[in-house]
Simulated scan of single mutants.
Amino acid sequence: ISDDVWIKMLNKELKYVHDKGYLQRHPKLQPKMRAILLDWLLEVSEVYSLHRQTAYLAQDYFDRFMLTQEDVNKDYLQLIGITALFIASKIEEIYPPKIFEFAYVTDGACDMWDIQRTELHVLKALDWNLCPETPISWLKLYCQVEAQKDDENFLEPQFSQETYIQITQLLDLCMMDISSLDYSYSVLAAAAFCHFSTFDVVHKVSGLTWESVSHCVRWMSPFVDTLRSEAKPQIKNFPKVKADDRHNIQTHVAYLDLLERQIDRPDCQHSPVAAGAILTPPSSTEKPVNP
């Protein structure tokens, strides 16, 4: 990978600031509400076969938007979240779902006009800065650098899809805990990679020192232990998705249950998450038909 590309990616880490402290600006909100919202967005992403990068862009937009606001009521979280996913899909997807499809999955809670109005609000608040390097983009880069052989096209994925989806599941679970915002996205991806490789490999592909990732690696350990008690994720088939792109499609498992179980561990100090959901998940895996 060229030095120019690497420097541009690192500069984005400085430009796109995220901070879990935004909750102090919203006294009516709790960490569990964010977790429930993100879990629902992952579910919507799977329903519409959206890419992992799209879901992670939506998470980034949501968290950065909330950093610019004050005293948001919990009743608006679903609208902000689905709008963030709508914007992200237009950035990342070749064929993004239509706005009425995003309204549809809210089961009447948000209509198209709500989403359009909120879209403008979010774009202005983010100053149209919509292209961060997410944990997913960093992870894909690390995996590709590690698997790269001299005579192969760098743009063609060389890494194991099976290992990749295990690491992404770990990132998904970690991302739902607001404490993940304590870390830069490059460090989050490197720490997750560490749990499936050696630090020597991670250092080789990321250039990061042990001092810069060790705290995050330790923070992730209870999440890893929780996932180890589950069956390994399997690569899913999606209609109209090619076999070599399946690992890039966002999937959803019972992340709230996993988070609850992980937080119940005696060695865990994480944000509390309630099991009760406040959002309406998609009722099926079928997309609505055009009216």
Results as ranks from 00 to 15, higher is better:
Trp40Leu: 14
Leu41Met: 05
Leu42Tyr: 11
Glu43Trp: 05
Ser45Asp: 01
Glu46Trp: 04
Glu46Pro: 09
Glu46Ser: 04
Glu46Met: 08
Val47Leu: 10
Val47His: 07
Tyr48Val: 11
Leu50His: 10
His51Gly: 06
His51Thr: 09
Arg52Cys: 10
Arg52Met: 02
Ala55Arg: 00
Leu57Trp: 01
Leu57Tyr: 09
Ala58Phe: 00
Gln59Met: 13
Asp60Tyr: 09
Asp60Met: 07
Asp60Asn: 14
Tyr61Asp: 06
Arg64Tyr: 11
Arg64Glu: 12
Met66Leu: 14
Leu67Cys: 11
Thr68Lys: 15
Thr68Gln: 15
Glu70Ala: 10
Asn73Thr: 14
Tyr76Ser: 12
Tyr76Gly: 10
Gln78Thr: 12
Gln78Gly: 13
Ile80Lys: 03
Ile82Gly: 00
Ala84Pro: 06
Leu85Phe: 03
Phe86Arg: 05
Phe86Gly: 02
Ala88Val: 04
Ala88Pro: 02
Ala88Arg: 02
Ala88Lys: 08
Ser89Glu: 03
Ser89Asp: 03
Lys90His: 10
Lys90Ala: 11
Glu93Leu: 00
Ile94His: 07
Tyr95Asn: 13
Pro97Ile: 01
Lys98Cys: 06
Phe100Pro: 11
Phe100Ala: 05
Glu101Pro: 08
Glu101Gln: 10
Glu101His: 04
Phe102Arg: 02
Ala103Leu: 03
Val105Arg: 04
Thr106Ile: 01
Thr106Met: 01
Asp107Pro: 06
Asp107Met: 08
Asp111Ser: 10
Trp113Asn: 12
Trp113Phe: 13
Trp113Lys: 14
Asp114Trp: 00
Arg117Phe: 12
Thr118Cys: 15
Thr118Ile: 07
Thr118Leu: 05
Glu119Trp: 00
Glu119Cys: 06
Glu119Ile: 09
Leu120Thr: 07
His121Asp: 12
Val122Asn: 08
Val122Ser: 00
Leu123Arg: 09
Asp127Gln: 15
Leu130Ile: 11
Cys131Arg: 12
Cys131Pro: 05
Pro132Cys: 02
Glu133Pro: 01
Glu133Trp: 03
Pro135Arg: 01
Pro135Ile: 00
Ser137Thr: 09
Trp138Glu: 04
Leu139Phe: 01
Lys140Gln: 11
Tyr142Gly: 08
Gln144His: 03
Gln144Asn: 02
Glu146Phe: 08
Gln148Pro: 00
Gln148Lys: 13
Lys149Asp: 13
Lys149Gly: 08
Asp150Val: 11
Asp150Arg: 11
Asn153Val: 13
Phe154Ala: 10
Glu156Ile: 14
Pro157Asn: 00
Pro157Lys: 01
Pro157Phe: 01
Pro157Tyr: 01
Gln158Gly: 05
Gln158Val: 02
Gln158Tyr: 07
Phe159Ser: 00
Gln161Ile: 10
Glu162Lys: 12
Gln166Phe: 05
Ile167Asn: 02
Ile167Lys: 07
Thr168Lys: 11
Leu170Ser: 01
Leu170Ala: 03
Leu170Glu: 05
Leu170Val: 10
Leu171Val: 12
Leu171Lys: 06
Asp172Met: 00
Leu173Asn: 04
